[in-house]
């Protein structure tokens, strides 16, 4: 796939920014002693609330916490490094779908917590989810990222 310079610039910027966001969230969770998603999961709203409360139950919360931190970091790494970015984007889409459905910004459903903005159905989770879809189908890692080293068109010609 070939891009114009502005296309490549903004697609790469989008990839790096989304990766930055995921990786920072993952690192923070790893580094914060006693961090847990239990409050977020137990306070889930909407039709899928029982499922998320199950994920937040005492029996499962350890696994839920570890998976969250690992997956956030893994998605962040693939996007920032520019390798396996399609797989990373898909995992990221699945996670954002979870975050969205646990506290959907639907009319009549209370917000998860204090918010800096106002949302009607579409919130930032949903916007980032769509952005990851764009990144999955408009990859840039083979042009700017570790993918460069695995891109046959990009091999240095030895005379």
């Amino acid at each position: 796939m070939t891009y114009s310079k502005p296309q490549l610039f903004f697609l790469t910027a989008l990839r790096l920014f989304a990766g930055w966001h995921f990786l920072f969230e993952g690192f923070i969770k790893f580094l914060t002693p006693g961090w847990t998603a239990q409050g977020y999961l137990l306070s889930a709203q909407g039709p899928f609330a029982p499922f998320f409360q199950w994920l937040g139950s005492d029996a499962l919360i350890g696994i839920s916490d570890t998976l969250t931190a690992v997956a956030l970091s893994a998605v962040g790494l693939t996007l920032i490094l520019g390798i396996w970015e399609k797989a990373g984007a898909f995992i990221g889409i699945a996670m954002l779908a979870f975050f969205y459905l646990a506290h959907p910004s639907w009319p009549g459903i209370p917000a998860a917590g204090p918010s800096e903005g106002n949302y009607f159905i579409v919130n930032k989770n949903l916007v980032e989810l769509a952005a990851l879809g764009v990144l999955a189908w408009f990859p840039t890692g083979h042009l700017l990222g570790l993918g460069v080293f695995f891109n046959p068109q990009n091999q240095v010609q030895h005379g």
Binding site: F24, L77, I80, L81, G145, L146, G147, V148, F149
Partner: peptide, 15 residues
């Protein structure tokens, strides 16, 4: 090529 390939590394350090 190396510069293009390793563009993400400084970001990881920063994050």
């Amino acid at each position: 090529k190396a510069l293009k390939g390793l563009i993400g590394l400084p970001f990881i350090g920063g994050i």
